[in-house]
């Protein structure tokens, strides 16, 4: 660009001084994008392990989780039943394994549906403002003002117990957080110059909403999502514990904890092991969430 080749950018024929062509150069390291941190991979590995267990449950479980054997109930871990049997003689290990088929998908969906509903509503509210915004915010105020567990109990009572009712109830409550998170971001982003520039360029509103506003607002929601899965899974376990969640005999960790309560002194593993499963699952999701937060925090 200068010196030895004889080309002198400071003095040009036209006298204007612009004939050089600028190569893009990466800005110094402090602004370089952080690669995905290791903890995300560890968390993803944990979740994948659980998912595989759920998928291959029939191959992995030594016994039918529903098969009762009242004579051999409450047996401690031995060579046949590696983790013992519960009060109805069912194999604990098999039930733990099969429970992944309930806890994993429902936990995930119980966070995913609120995420979808809340994110859409929040984006529209933040972007268009006015009536949509006022309506959305007032409804979310009402929902938040309600004691949540009572609302869930009421909904489950009306709709009857089961996975569907749980999902409806959680969605009705859970969307609010996502709406607020993304609305805050949208409010910030929509006054950014690049959004104005898109408007000035004449691009259609729908495209601006998705490409310019949404893509730059959705980050915090994605960070929150994994931790919400943890909350949802725990809530599911809690409701099953209270008898409002997945009805018996379907194996589910929360229900297993409840069933094992009465025998906590002698057969402590009946309640403890499902709890450990929940903790591990939660750990996996938390690592993913933390890792995402780090990598988005450039």
């Amino acid at each position: 660009m200068s010196g030895p080749t004889g080309h002198n950018p400071l003095i040009t024929d036209s006298g204007i001084g612009l004939d050089e062509v600028e190569e893009a150069r990466a800005i110094p390291s402090r602004k370089r994008f952080k690669t995905v941190p290791r903890k995300v991979w560890i968390g993803a590995a944990i979740i994948t392990a659980f998912a595989l267990v759920a998928i291959f449950a029939p191959l992995l479980a030594p016994f039918d989780p529903l098969a009762q054997d009242p004579v051999n109930n409450l047996t401690p871990p031995d060579s046949t039943h590696l983790l013992g049997t519960d009060e109805l003689g069912r194999d604990v290990l098999s039930r733990l394994i099969y429970a992944t088929r309930t806890d994993l998908p429902i936990g995930l969906l119980a966070a995913l549906f609120p995420f979808l509903v809340g994110t859409v509503l929040g984006t529209l509210a933040g972007f268009f403002g006015g009536f949509i915004d006022a309506l959305t915010m007032r409804i979310s105020d009402i929902v938040q003002a309600f004691p949540s567990y009572i609302l869930v109990i009421a909904l489950v009572f009306v709709l009857g117990p089961g996975a569907k009712s749980i999902l409806i109830a959680f969605t009705a409550l859970g969307w609010v957080v996502y709406a607020r998170i993304i609305r805050t971001e949208v409010l910030r982003v929509r006054s950014a110059d690049y959004v104005k520039a898109a408007k000035v360029s004449g691009l259609p509103t729908r495209g601006i909403l998705v490409r310019d506003v949404f893509r730059n607002s959705v980050g915090p929601s994605l960070v929150y999502f994994p931790s919400d899965i943890v909350f949802a899974t725990l809530a599911l376990a809690a409701f099953s514990f209270l008898g409002l969640g997945i009805p018996p005999p379907t194996p589910e960790w929360g229900a297993m904890i409840a069933d094992g309560q009465a025998h906590i002194r002698e057969q402590w593993w009946l309640s403890t092991l499902p709890g450990v499963m929940i903790v591990l699952l939660g750990l996996g999701y938390s690592l993913i969430g933390d890792g995402l937060e780090e990598s988005l925090d450039k």
Binding site: L10, G17, R25, P28
Partner: peptide
Amino acid sequence: IEPRGIPGQPPDPA
């Protein structure tokens, strides 16, 4: 005299 810029950028502080 038209003002002339200085082409290029400062070096990387790293």
